[in-house]
Structure formats: structure tokens, C-alpha cells
Amino acid sequence: MNKALKNPLIFILFVIPALTLFFVFFIYPIFSSIYYSFTSWNGVSDTVKYTGLTNFKKALGDERFWVSVKNNGWFILFSVFIQVPLIVFFSLLIANVKKLKGLYKTAVFMPSIMSTAVIGILWGFIYEPNIGLFNKLLGLFGVEPIYWLSDERFAMLSILITNAWQWTGFYIVMVLAAILSIPGELDEAAAIDGATGFQRATRITLPLIVPIISVVIMLSIAGAMKAADIVIVMTKGGPAGSTEVMATYMIKYAITNFKYGYGNTIAVLIFVFTLIVTALYQLLFNRRSERIEY
């Protein structure tokens, strides 16, 4: 058995299936999208016409495309500056709960395992102008009904809130796991020295969970760049394209309008923009830190 494990051919045989799947489902689609992004093709016919940079010029000169880019930017900003602080705050609260901690973890994680279609429909009822929960509460203070998903001023915010509600629990469980892995002796020693709960949270717990917070931010950015399903379910990019994101913009052209070549151009631009945003994050905020050992 030991001789077999030392044989390089054995390792190659184990690696080949994984490499094959990686090539078929990742490498090939990327290069395929790049190839078709320089063509004019409807995705069905045998005729594929090379058009050079025409598709890219069209996309970069399209005002609707830049609206979708801006909306993806709103997803990123909302996730990083509003959702992530709330994730850390609620994680600290749950970590200090003495009873029913498992119940709270299950409750906050529940939306993450629900279908996006179900969540979109559920929040559609909450945002409903006449019988929706939000407008009913606002009506108690004499506020006129707000058309949350039909008004350009509120539609994007409504989607951002819904998306955050769905995924906040997933990230809370991740951060909570990091908090609970910190040895209790550190917190007890700080308490004996007279540190308040706030001081222990900000000077001990938060610095120790910075790596997992960094991962949460990275995942939030990646999720914001590929957001599509919640928009399709709730507004389909409306009203008047005000909630369009790059992924829904791509779907409309590639699938609905049978402009497969142009749709792949948008896919390539999404890929490039994602690389740029993540690289900037790594450069500016995710600097290498020393490994912490307890």
C-alpha cells in the first residue's frame, strides 16, 4: 500500500478526474465566452460572424449597461458598509447569549436555505402598496402608501434589503463560528482585569476575527457582482431599467433577444470587472496580517 501511494501515477489518476471537471466546467466556458464575445451569433444558427471589438464598443457606449454597472456598485456598497457591520454586530450578540443559542443560529440561518424565488415572492407581499406590512406600519404614522417595487426611488433599495435579509444569516454563522473558536480564557482574563463587554468585543474579539470578516467581505463582493435571481423575481430589472444589474442585462440579450455574441461580451465584462474589484480590495483592505495563535 505504501509503495502504491509513493507512485506518482497513482496521484495522477486521482487528480485527472478533478482536472477534467475543472477544465470542462470552468476553463472551457471562460475561453468559449471570450471567443463568442468577438462575434455576432444568435446562439442557434451555424453562422458565426466575427465582429472584432464591435460588441465591446456597443456595451461600453450603452447607457443601460452603465446603469447596470452602477446598480452592481450599490450591491457592493450596501453589502460592505451596511450588511457586514450588521453581521458582526448580531454575531457578537448571539455569541454572548447564554440560553437557546442553537435556536438563534437556526433562526438567522433559515432564510439562506430558502429558494430565492420564495423569498422574492414573500417580500413582494411585504412591499405590496395596499396590504403590505411596510405600508401598514407607515400608515399608522399617517404616511401615504409607497410603491416600493414600482417607484424608481425605492425599487433598488427594496431589492438590497431583501437580498441582505436572505444572506445575512449565512455569514453570521461563519463569523459566529470564528468567535466561538476563540479561547474563553482570553475573555475571562480581560474581564478580571476590569475590561467592559464593549472593550472585550472591540479590543479582543474583533481583532481576532478579522480574517473571517475579510472572507465575508470578499464573498459579499463576489455575490454582489453575480446578483441576478433576486432582481429577476422581484422587478425583472424595472421600473424602466432602474434595477437592472449586469447579469440580468446579459440574460436579456443572450437568451431573450437571441444575441448570444453580445451576451457573452457582457459576461466577459462582468468577469473583468469582478477581477478589478477583488484586486482593488486585496490591494487596499486585505493586506497580509500575521498569523494569530492562541
Rank of each mutant, 00 (worst) to 15 (best):
I255D: 05
G61R: 04
M174A: 04
T54Q: 11
K49A: 15
D151P: 06
L5F: 15
E293I: 15
S37E: 07
G197I: 00
A95H: 10
F81S: 01
N7T: 05
I270P: 07
A227E: 09
F90P: 06
L60V: 12
M174Q: 04
G139K: 06
S112P: 00
F109K: 02
Y281R: 01
V80P: 09
N163V: 12
M156A: 01
M1S: 13
V268N: 05
F170H: 10
T243I: 07
N71T: 00
G169L: 01
A178M: 04
S158G: 04
N7G: 00
L180F: 04
W123D: 08
T196R: 06
L140F: 10
I212W: 03
L206V: 14
S115I: 01
G197T: 07
E63Q: 14
L93Y: 04
N130A: 15
V173F: 02
V84E: 07
T202S: 12
A228G: 15
R203Q: 12
S242A: 13
N42T: 12
P85Y: 00
A178S: 13
P145N: 05
R153K: 11
R291H: 15
T39M: 08
R203H: 14
R153A: 11
Y35V: 03
I255E: 01
F78C: 03
L122F: 11
R287D: 03
A191L: 13
P207D: 01
N135L: 08
F26T: 14
E290Y: 13
E244V: 09
N42C: 12
K58S: 09
F141Q: 04
Y249G: 11
W165K: 00
F26R: 11
S181G: 09
L275A: 14
F78Y: 05
I10H: 08
L5N: 13
L280D: 06
G261K: 00
Y260Q: 02
G237R: 03
V173W: 06
L176S: 00
V233G: 06
F78V: 04
I192K: 03
T235R: 03
V231F: 15
F56P: 11
